[in-house]
């Protein structure tokens, strides 16, 4: 067991962990932050994406010990300080960018980084950036649309009817 100390959603935390404790396990079991989900074991589905030191990572493919000293943000830390939905979260609701909600935390975390890196991404750029996030419900249509809308683009013309 080793002690790890990090900041999670702005709060300092310090816990004893085993060497093989994954970040997903640390967040879900030790901190009870169950919004970070586990959908696969090969680092592909992206339901577990979090931000570590400002970068998106798959929490299922990183050990808690490797986050020593890091600033970690999870889905629980994404809403506005007053508790209202952030622009991206609100766009997902407005454009029906989620159904069962299981992939949603990872989608939001990935989308947030995309918009930081590329404030006005094209449809193609969004689809490409979502390569590591699998959604089984939405067919991605409304996820892509929500991200475009969150970036301030006009989405009213997308696949009308």
């Amino acid at each position: 067991m080793t002690k790890v100390t990090m900041t999670v959603n702005g709060k300092a935390v310090s816990k004893e962990v085993s060497g093989n404790t994954l970040m997903t396990e640390f967040l879900r079991d030790a901190l009870h932050l169950t919004g970070t989900h586990v959908g696969c074991d090969t680092s592909q589905c992206g339901a577990c994406v979090i931000h570590v030191d400002g970068k998106s990572v798959k929490a299922c493919t990183m050990f808690a010990a490797e986050a020593e000293g890091a600033e970690v943000v999870t889905i629980e830390g994404m809403a506005n300080p007053d508790g209202s939905l952030s622009v991206i979260q609100q766009a997902f609701q407005d454009h029906h960018g989620l159904q069962c909600g299981f992939c949603t935390p990872g989608m939001v975390m990935t989308a947030a980084k995309l918009l930081e890196e590329n404030p006005s991404p094209s449809e193609h750029e969004i689809r490409d950036y979502l390569e590591g996030n699998i959604c089984r419900c939405t067919g991605y249509h409304n996820i892509v649309k929500a991200i475009m809308a969150a970036s301030g683009q006009d989405v009213s013309g997308i696949a009308a009817e």
Partner: peptide, 9 residues
């Protein structure tokens, strides 16, 4: 290579 999160690690 991979996806953005994989590329970060």
């Amino acid at each position: 290579i991979g996806d953005p999160a994989v590329r970060n690690r």
